[in-house]
Design a protein around this nucleic acid. Structure first.
Lengths: 195, 195
DNA sequence: AGAGTATCTGAACGCGTGTTCAGTTCAATC
DNA sequence: GATTGAACTGAACACGCGTTCAGATACTCT
């Protein structure tokens, strides 16, 4: 019988995750202490252990959650249309998705080396799946003659690096909207792989 | 009167830097202790302080050295020829330079947030200078009508992100030589900004 | 041989770490 | 109104941190 009112766990739990994400993104996993996270939430350090078995799980759960969101949203949009249309959709989606969650993106790309090997393998597997979708689009395009890329694997990694790089400079208060950024990048991606 | 033989400082000093670079690249600045660095060199932790005033300076000196190397090598190769030739030279140089120093690159891009504000400003200034060279090439190309980029600033950051991303997947033992990688990327860069 | 000094050791300093846990608080239930 | 149990505190644990420094070591120079 879970209590409905007066129970804080369904409030504190997410707040722990939020605080951890924020702090990990700003200072890095290794540089953030459990006491800092607790202070941000407004509890003592010991209370965090009602919501995570340990610090490593806090990091892993954040990264797995981010990657699963990514894959789920990707699966929701079907790969419809020809390679060019699919590539445009992928490009704009990637930009929009990443600009919406700068902290999660930052943590997921920077803290891979702080994952225990087993956890690392899980995240790496999810990422590989995401990359494979782009690679499939490029390969289809090459087969149909609409794309010309000498090495689809390298092109995949190059395009993803370029797109993800947007998170390092984009600022909400800046002169460009996410959609405008998407258009700028789509223009470059399209030309880069064009036949 | 510096002693020539028997003096270890000119051996230990560089070894400290090497060890710090290796460990920072693999585990991150915050996760590496002075005792770990000392163990890698084969001395006690206290001995490190003959070669650096503190841990922060160790990081800063590594990053500054890397950026200064980058700028020096860039200055050595003049910006000769038209925008297309200069862009090709820049692209191939960037790939080759970065593939030669994976550890320094990794540290310089990942540990910016662990720099004290003053040190951060120095490194950021150097990087800005490097980016400006690429931006200048793109702007010249646009002026001459050989490039078509809607936003030179964004294009600069996009190209650099794409090129630097090569360090995340390239392995010396892999199927591609640095020169081959350079050619693959140049093909994509050239098309991405072409008029 | 003796003096001088660059180099390093080993112990210590105060402090922060992740984690555990007995005990307190307090709203929901009976 | 008594009981229950989830949520949390506050103190403690063993340990590692960056840094300092008096003293040992090992070498060069006179």
């Amino acid at each position: 019988m879970a209590r409905k009112t007066g129970s804080h766990s369904d409030i504190t739990g997410p707040r722990v995750q939020q605080a951890a994400l924020r702090l990990f993104a700003r200072h890095g996993y290794a540089a953030v202490s459990m006491r800092q996270i607790a202070a941000e939430v407004g509890v003592q350090a010991g209370a965090l252990y009602n919501y995570t078995p340990d610090k490593q799980s806090l990091l892993f759960d954040l990264m797995r959650g981010h990657m699963e969101d990514l894959m789920a949203e990707r699966a929701a949009r079907g790969g419809q249309g020809g390679p060019l249309a699919r590539l445009e959709e992928f490009t704009r989606f990637h930009i929009a998705f990443h600009l919406e969650r700068p902290d999660a993106v930052f943590v997921s790309y920077m803290e891979l080396r702080n994952l225990e090997p087993k956890n690392f393998a899980v995240i790496e597997g999810l990422r590989r799946g995401y990359e494979n979708e782009l690679q499939g689009i490029l390969e289809d395009g090459v087969a149909e003659g609409v794309f010309a890329v000498a090495d689809p694997k390298v092109a995949t990694l190059a395009v993803i690096a370029m797109l993800t790089g947007v998170t390092t400079w984009y600022r909400r208060e800046g002169r460009l909207s996410p959609a405008e950024v998407g258009t700028l990048y789509w223009d470059m991606v399209r030309k880069a792989v064009a036949a």
